[in-house]
Simulated assay, not measured.
Amino acid sequence: MDTNPSGKQKALIAYLTFVGMLIAYFMNRDDKHEFAKWHIKNMFGLVILLFVSVALQNYEIGFYVYWISVGLWILSFVMALLNKQKAIPFLSEKFQTWFTFLD
């Protein structure tokens, strides 16, 4: 991968909360970048995982799902900083195939 891939700024913005993901998505609609699209889909999957943890907050599993999603978010953000399109084993690949509506 390039030392500074096009769309890196959008990819980093995508990891700045749910609102950042929406901003990055709309920024990427006109001037599409594959790197940004990959990270936007990855963040969308992480947001869904976070919503699941909130839905499960009355159960002990919700606590663990929340902290797992936070850890995966940090890992994904660092991978975007390092110009890589890899992050969460297995899940990142699934996010790319499941969320094709974000293309």
Rank of each mutant, 00 (worst) to 15 (best):
G71W: 12
M27L: 03
D31K: 11
L49Q: 05
F77G: 06
R29T: 02
Y15T: 03
A24S: 03
F51L: 15
F26K: 02
S76P: 09
G62H: 04
T100V: 12
V19D: 04
F44V: 02
F77L: 14
K84V: 11
L12A: 08
V78Q: 14
W98T: 12
F35H: 05
M27H: 00
A55Q: 05
Y66K: 11
S53P: 15
K84Y: 13
L22E: 00
F63G: 09
E34I: 05
M1Y: 11
K8L: 08
F99L: 12
S76E: 13
L72K: 02
E93A: 15
V19P: 01
W98E: 07
N58S: 07
F35Q: 03
L81H: 15
L22K: 02
A36C: 04
G45F: 03
S69L: 14
N4W: 14
Y25P: 00
K41Q: 06
G62N: 06
M43A: 08
Q57F: 15
R29D: 04
A11N: 02
T3K: 09
A36D: 00
E93G: 15
V70H: 08
F63Y: 14
L75E: 14
L49M: 10
E93D: 15
R29S: 02
A24V: 01
Q85K: 15
L102I: 04
F44S: 02
L81F: 15
L50K: 08
A11V: 01
M1A: 12
D30I: 01
P89C: 11
Y15H: 09
K32W: 04
I88N: 03
K37A: 09
V54R: 06
I23G: 00
A55L: 14
D103T: 07
E60M: 12
N58G: 11
N28V: 01
M21F: 02
I74T: 14
L22F: 01
L72C: 09
L50R: 09
G20W: 00
W67E: 09
I88K: 04
V19M: 05
L72N: 06
F18Q: 07
V47E: 06
Q96E: 11
M21V: 02
H39C: 03
V47A: 09
A14D: 02
K37E: 10
F26S: 02
L16C: 05
H39T: 05
Y64L: 12
D30S: 04
E34T: 07
V47T: 12
D31H: 07
W98A: 12
G62Q: 07
N83D: 15
K86H: 15
F26T: 02
K94S: 10
L16N: 07
A14I: 02
S69W: 08
L49H: 05
